[in-house]
């Protein structure tokens, strides 16, 4: 005989696990009083639940236990590099300073590489530009020609 109670299978399991809402539990119990099939299946679900609770827990395989234990140990330990730095700081402060210095220098190098390149400006280039102005003056002395001497001119822009 089949029951037309909606979603009876899910309700029976949920009832056994005490997961039904109070109104749903009362509705199912009222239905079970009038439905021998559902009353029987409900009793079966409860009996099965009790039997599982009473059964002894199986023993964990030793390898699994050891693996889990080792993993737990690793997760609770600090990173090796932190352990090394702490040891270094305690035993060799100078070496620790050196390591910190290298790290700082590396960071600075990264920053510098990101900056625009420094351009060198020789004085001769400025003297050539100044000499141009001197030669352009109406009474410019011929001696100003000497500031034109090569070595003071730059190439293309």
């Amino acid at each position: 005989m089949t029951c037309d109670y909606p979603e009876i299978e899910d309700c029976l399991e949920a009832y056994a696990d005490a997961e039904l809402a109070p109104a749903e539990r009362r509705g199912l119990e009222e239905h079970a009083r009038g439905c021998p099939e559902c009353r029987r299946r409900l009793a079966l679900a409860l009996a099965l639940k009790a039997a599982v609770r009473r059964a002894p827990a199986p023993a964990m395989p030793p390898e699994l236990a050891a693996s889990l234990h080792a993993r737990a140990q690793r997760l609770s330990r600090p990173p090796i590099w932190r352990v090394w730095l702490a040891g270094l700081r305690a035993r060799r402060p100078a070496a620790y300073g050196l390591a910190a210095g290298f790290a700082a220098a590396a960071a600075l190098l990264v920053v510098r590489l990101a900056q625009p390149e420094t351009v060198t400006l020789p004085l001769d280039v400025l003297l050539a530009a100044h000499g141009d102005c001197v030669r352009a003056m109406p009474l410019a002395p011929e001696a100003a020609i000497l500031s034109q001497l090569p070595g003071r001119w730059e190439g293309p822009r």
């Binding site: 420094t118 060198t120 400006l121 020789p122 400025l126 530009a129 100044h130 102005c133 009474l139």
Partner: peptide, 23 residues
């Protein structure tokens, strides 16, 4: 450039990241 009619004085203003090489 600045001048008194005969002589010239030059002033150069250089932006950052320019290194002056005075010889």
């Amino acid at each position: 450039r600045f001048s008194d009619g005969i002589n010239v004085v030059s002033l150069f203003q250089c932006p950052p990241h320019v290194r002056l090489d005075l010889g």
